[in-house]
Design a protein around this nucleic acid. Structure first.
Lengths: 334, 334
DNA sequence: AGATTACGATGAAAGGTTTCATTAATCAAT
DNA sequence: ATTGATTAATGAAACCTTTCATCGTAATCT
């Protein structure tokens, strides 16, 4: 069933059929009905490839993520998929495995297949990505690391506000000795979360020095070993702000198996709000990075520049916020 | 940059350029080099859409999953993505949200865009899916529920073998009073896991009757409430085989907060081997459904029928197997 | 020498849609 | 009645690649 068949059946030209389908020009009620009848009769659907060829673009969005199996991503993907689907687009998913080169290759491939837009929800980064993006044929949305410009948007997570809320929460509970288990320094969001912690601490304790900061790796084991290290030292903090939930849960487990009680002996605050944060015992107080919203807003930002040749992108700032559960309490020690 | 430009630059016809690119006919070394030079000079890449149109097919694989945020799927997706990428294909990801109608709609859409093949890694099911598949234009791979036929394969997980190993393991530890927390009866894999448990128990305890089976919902909370219910009864089993890890962890938490010790007071075996299974305290003994392999084998099966008009599909049977960790031990009671 | 074969390269059609420029038709106005 | 304006529909080009059938040349055979 080609458009030609429909045209013949309806006794009109292919152009008219096209106009009826795409509502791109006025056609008489009468002819429109004839065409629609023929379409229904043959259950006709336009050939997507021919359409793409003729239009020079496809209704496909490319989504790059660093690691699907990192619990941070699936929810983002889910909300992106839902948003994209509602708009009648399809989603091509690419997993970079934190490999910046691979990311560049993927982007090339997506551009070559003339996708409508690209979502770069990755934590690795390469200058080449920006270079590629600057060719401006394709809309791009960065995440955190990136720039705003023609056809380029950036959705950035405001880590600082949530972390400040976390510190604030601990301070108001009476904590003074607060440590931080940082994420990997290799990773941007690790560095920025640490910075946010430092800034917030400086705000609340202007004269404090030598903040206790342990570098982790964003993984369960890293949290556990940081906690282990913490337990070796002469003075244990009364609270710890951890750069992500996985490490927070690792630390919690270590503390518990050392005989400490959370939150009585030590308060713990995580970051991300992964599903398991509600399931731990005690349920983890954590800073939520609203993934559903990240996905939704990223697609929104993308669509702003899709199909608009020189449209300038926007910066979307999404706040993080504290969710109080049961892993925080007033300190039992000084 | 069109193929025409390359042809002009190299002083040959477009046909020759095409043959050089696709190695579809012999061309002289001399002309080949000229063409390759021109290609490199202009950094030419064939227009994917035109290619698809000319060939009537695309190098795209569609993957339907029930719920990306269910920890079962991301690893499958990851391995599918890797396999598909290595073959030079792209992956379109669709999330059905356990909605069979939506699945049907997705499949239609994929067929309409003439994807090379479709992977149906979903747990919902609709006869319409089979009907659609039977039109045979597109290769399809089912998972568990499905049929094998022309262009249709089925990769089925052998739940029984792993569950039998689990029961066997408990029996050899000396357990006699073994309960089951089942998944939702609405879902095929819930029913089949329960059946496998029943069969295995009948094998080991031919004269036993009234197996203790609690219906759950595959979610943490379901496991917890099943355990809660279990605790109300006069006699607590010494071991419990749970239909998935999430419920197993929920049950474990409930037992622990009731003051019981796992595994001393009660042994727990989960199913799936999600990431958190290793992180719980104690680490969860569980039956592994090898997701990496599922993804890999599914793509393998798919590729068998892709591009081969009347190729018959295959049935792939993937065994599950027990991973012994620390949530199982000999019973302390009779 | 003339006929046949093999080879390398090519021209043109096919694939199905969109859309620009054009035609045909209708109507209003002069 | 003629012209001009407006509207609805059309024809054909453009999008770009692949591939079949063809062609010309050179080599081989009788």
């Amino acid at each position: 069933m080609r458009i030609k068949d429909i045209a013949r059946e309806a006794g009109v030209s292919t152009a008219t059929v096209s106009h009826v389908i795409n509502k791109t020009k006025y056609v008489t009620d009468e002819t429109r009905e004839k065409v629609q009848l023929a379409i229904k009769k043959f259950n006709y659907h336009p050939n997507a490839h021919a359409q793409m060829l003729a239009l020079g673009k496809s209704k496909i969005i490319g989504l790059l993520v660093s690691d699907i199996s990192n619990p941070f991503f699936p929810e983002i993907i889910k909300s992106v998929e839902a948003a994209v689907f509602d708009l009648g687009y399809s989603l091509i998913l690419l997993n970079t495995n934190y490999d910046a080169e691979r990311a560049v290759e993927y982007v090339h491939r997506l551009i070559q297949m003339k996708v409508a837009g690209i979502l770069l929800l990755i934590s690795e980064f390469d200058e080449a990505l920006i270079e590629v993006a600057k060719r401006k044929k394709t809309s791009i949305v960065f995440h955190d690391l990136g720039i705003v410009g023609e056809k380029m948007s950036n959705v950035i997570l405001d880590y600082a506000v949530g972390i400040d809320e976390a510190v604030q929460h601990l301070v108001s509970l009476g904590h003074k000795n607060i440590a931080h288990i940082a994420g990997s320094h290799e990773i941007y969001s690790g560095r920025i979360r640490e910075q946010a912690f430092v800034d917030s601490m400086k705000k609340h304790f202007p004269k404090a020095e030598n903040l206790k900061i342990y570098e982790g790796d964003f993984r369960f084991e890293g949290g556990r070993s940081a906690a282990h290290q913490m337990l070796q030292e002469k003075e244990l903090p009364t609270a710890v702000v951890v750069a992500n939930d996985l490490m927070a849960l690792g630390a919690m487990q270590e503390f518990k198996s050392a005989g400490l009680h959370v939150p009585q002996d030590i308060s713990i605050i995580g970051f991300d709000d992964i599903a398991f944060a509600t399931l731990s015992e005690p349920a983890l107080t954590t800073v939520c990075s609203p993934r559903i919203e990240i996905g939704r807003r990223a697609v929104e930002a993308l669509m702003l520049t899709v199909d608009r040749p020189h449209q300038h992108g926007i910066e979307v700032r999404i706040p993080t916020y504290l969710i109080k559960r049961n892993s925080t309490a007033p300190p039992s020690r000084k």
